[in-house]
Computed example of a mutant assay.
Amino acid sequence: MPFDAQTTAAAARRTSPDPRPVGLWLLGVAGMVWIMVALGGATRLTGSGLSIMEWAPLSGALPPLSEAEWNRLYALYQTIPQYALVNQGFGLAGFKGIFWLEWTHRLWGRLIGLAFALPLAWFWLRGQIPAGTKGRLLLLLLLGGLQGAVGWFMVASGFEADRTAVSPYRLVVHLGLALGLYAALLWTGLSLLRPPAAPHPAFASLRRQVKAAAWLVAAAMLAGGFVAGIKAGLDYNTFPLMDGRLVPEGYWRLEPAWRNLTANIPAVQFNHRLLATLAALAALGAALAAWRRLPPGAARRACLGLGAAVCLQYGLGIATLLLVVPAWLGTLHQACAVLVLTAALVALHALRAPRRPT
Rank of each mutant, 00 (worst) to 15 (best):
C303I: 00
Q6C: 14
A337V: 02
L312I: 13
A220Y: 08
P119S: 04
T15A: 13
L39S: 13
L171M: 09
N264I: 07
A220Q: 04
R293A: 11
W34Y: 13
G158F: 03
H349F: 11
V33C: 08
R207A: 12
A121I: 12
L190R: 10
R259G: 07
L306T: 02
A212T: 13
A5Q: 15
N87S: 09
A213F: 01
S167I: 10
A117G: 12
W34E: 10
G307K: 01
I265Y: 01
R14D: 14
W122M: 11
T8D: 15
A93K: 04
L181M: 06
L142T: 14
L192M: 02
A156I: 09
R300T: 04
W34V: 09
L24G: 13
G151H: 10
M1I: 12
Q147I: 05
L329Y: 01
P195Y: 00
A263S: 12
R292N: 06
T79K: 15
V325C: 03
L274Q: 08
A327W: 09
L85M: 12
L171I: 09
H272V: 05
A353F: 06
A220G: 12
A219G: 15
F3P: 11
D162C: 06
T8P: 00
A327N: 08
E67C: 06
R13F: 00
P256C: 04
L141Q: 09
V173Q: 08
G229M: 05
H174Y: 02
L24F: 14
W122G: 09
P119Q: 05
T43Q: 00
Q78A: 11
A219Q: 10
T358G: 15
L284R: 02
K134A: 15
Q147G: 06
A219C: 11
F99E: 04
Y236F: 15
G330K: 03
R13V: 11
T164E: 09
G113A: 07
R352G: 04
Y77C: 07
W103K: 08
Y251T: 10
R253F: 00
P81G: 04
W187Y: 10
L65G: 09
G31N: 12
A178D: 08
G158P: 05
T15E: 14
V247T: 07
A290I: 05
L141I: 05
P168C: 08
T358W: 13
S16K: 06
E69K: 13
R273P: 03
A218M: 10
A327H: 04
T358R: 12
A347H: 03
C336N: 14
T164F: 00
Y236H: 12
Q82K: 02
Y169C: 03
A10G: 00
S157E: 09
F90C: 01
T43K: 01
G229E: 01
G91I: 03
G297Q: 04
A93G: 01
R72Y: 11
V227T: 10
T164V: 15
P296V: 01
L101H: 05
F99R: 04
A290M: 06
T331P: 06
A280V: 07
S205T: 12
T133E: 14
F203T: 04
S51I: 07
